[in-house]
């Protein structure tokens, strides 16, 4: 996250008696993303009484607090203080880690691969090539359970969601929708198009942190064959460097 050269304009909205929504509203989406994630880091490090934590996504940040200990008014002042300090000192520099994720594409592992290829008017091979070509920045952790939300592969068209969402998508499912890409860390219902599956364990509920990546880290996909899937069983997703 590079220091923001000029302060990013920010709006703060009430979101009930126990949360505030902070929205970075510059025309530069990269600067907005950097601002809300730096602010989340600052709030966490500052650790104000009664502030439970912050959930940053693309251009917005949800700050949750205990209204018995603090108040929307106090947290708003605290957020403004954080923004001024970030303007002054700049966002902390952090070297992103890189993850290489093996994926079996298509077949039972990626039931929607052909549908996506058809929609994009590309061959299955071309879809795989585009999906493995890109270095993805993990933008935020989403639902369910810390999913790495990434700006999607360079497909010609946005990918429509499934008309009938699946009741259960396996852990490790590699999916696309709209212009976004994701890996499902846990079994959950889902409406995204599943094009493959990684054999790696993404979410480990017995360890902290639960998922190995943080927003800002880099992720690449590489194709493996179905017969290799089993040889990865039980391996956890780990940073290459």
């Amino acid at each position: 996250m590079a220091p923001t050269p000029t302060p990013t304009p920010v709006e703060i909205f009430e979101s009930g008696d126990a949360a505030l929504r902070v929205v970075a509203s510059s025309p530069d989406s990269e600067a907005n993303w950097s601002t809300v994630h730096s602010l989340a880091g600052w709030l966490e490090a500052a650790g104000a009484d009664g502030v439970h934590g912050a959930v940053p996504t693309y251009d917005s940040l949800l700050v949750e607090f205990d209204p018995g200990v603090t108040s929307a008014r106090q947290v708003r002042a605290f957020v403004l203080l954080g923004l001024r300090q970030l303007d002054f000192i700049g966002a902390p520099a952090r070297t992103p880690r890189e993850f290489s994720v093996p994926v079996v594409y298509g077949g039972e592992y990626g039931p929607d691969l052909e549908r996506v290829a058809e929609h994009e008017q590309l061959s299955v091979e071309e879809i795989i090539e585009l999906h493995t070509a890109k270095s993805y920045v993990i933008r935020c952790l989403g639902a369910p359970a810390g999913s790495p939300m990434m700006d999607g592969p360079d497909f010609p068209l946005p990918v429509p969601r499934l008309k009938d969402p699946r009741l259960s998508v396996p852990a490790g499912a590699v999916a696309v929708a709209g212009r976004q890409a994701v890996i499902a860390p846990a079994v959950a219902p889902g409406g995204w198009c599943v094009i493959g599956q990684t054999p790696l364990t993404v979410l480990d509920a017995t360890s902290e942190p639960l998922v190995p990546y943080v927003p800002g880290d880099i992720l690449r996909f590489r194709q493996i064959q179905p017969e290799e899937f089993a040889s990865y069983a039980g391996r956890k997703m780990e940073a290459a460097r």
């Binding site: 693309y58 251009d59 917005s60 949800l62």
Partner: peptide, 12 residues
């Protein structure tokens, strides 16, 4: 307009 994913509070 499409809305980017964002954190939603309990009670939304």
């Amino acid at each position: 307009a499409e809305v980017l994913s964002r954190g939603v509070p309990v009670g939304a």
